[in-house]
Design a protein around this nucleic acid. Structure first.
Lengths: 158, 158
DNA sequence: TCTGAAAATGGACCTTT
DNA sequence: AAAGGTCCATTTTCAGA
């Protein structure tokens, strides 16, 4: 499953995770490869789905979503079709940035961005109060986004 | 604070959040703008920090981090310098993808990617058991990453 | 908005291990 | 075979008119 990545690949991944717009010749200079080799490796990493996609990260506050909220959700019954339909509902909600189905004290963890508390209130009605498979949920209001991103460590550790 | 974005900006942001490698002429075709106009707008959005950065999203499983874990942490005392040092510790830990300081039943929510349970165990020793300002923490093991990303909705809603 | 120069990408082809 | 390097055509970016 795990692709065999060498040291060059790891260095490249570290760089493009930090900044995907560094030109390939500059990347080559940093890792000691020709631009053509960098080009081939990046293409391979994309083809192999090691690199899932390239994206622009938008600052939520700058587009009118200054409020971030984490929600833990417990459900009533762990029934396949109910689960799937909940997952699809969460997936389809644009304000939900992330949705994880988890094992432990809760069943779902959601991370959402909203315009203001009123919008969050509306969403709780739609998503939680309006769904009779939701047993209870807890709201955690984010006061400081200490660290955010999808970066995966790529350094050589056991 | 909120930059004044028009409809073109929003459409562009929606597109580059989905895929940051679409060439500007193609973007222009999609939103009905010349490539030069697209170019200027994207530059402005970057300069204004509406677009924070461009990044490659790496599939954690493909580089040996198949396990994702959400942790909620409660701390002993909410003292400024202790808080700051905890934030810095969490920020510096490569396995911690996201760290939110929150209000509610917990103080921190962490999202981490690890190689296997043993690595997570080690991390709990370092980060939680080894820190006497941590009162308690709860582990939620992610079974399904239903939705992941940093996408911010940019459509026109109240 | 149009035009063109400069930069970046990505393929062809040859060489090394 | 697998991967690197050089060279070159094509595509993309980006600024001035």
């Amino acid at each position: 499953m795990t692709a065999h990545l060498d040291d060059y690949d790891r260095k490249l991944l570290a760089e493009v995770q930090k900044d995907a717009r560094i030109p390939q010749n500059e990347l080559g200079a940093r890792v000691n490869l020709s631009t053509a080799a960098v080009n081939r490796r990046l293409k391979r990493l994309s083809d192999d789905h090691v690199i899932e996609r390239y994206t622009a990260v938008v600052e939520p506050g700058a587009v009118g979503y200054p409020l971030m909220i984490v929600v833990t959700v417990e459900i009533e019954r762990e029934q396949m079709d109910l689960l799937d339909s909940m997952k699809r509902t969460f997936e389809a909600c644009p304000q939900i940035q992330q949705c994880y189905y988890v094992a432990g004290e809760w069943d779902f963890v959601l991370v959402l961005v909203v315009r203001h508390m009123d919008q969050y209130n509306d969403l709780t009605r739609q998503l939680f109060f309006g769904n009779n498979n939701v047993k209870r949920f807890k709201t955690l209001v984010v006061m400081d986004r200490v660290k955010a991103g999808q970066n995966v460590p790529v350094h050589i550790e056991p």
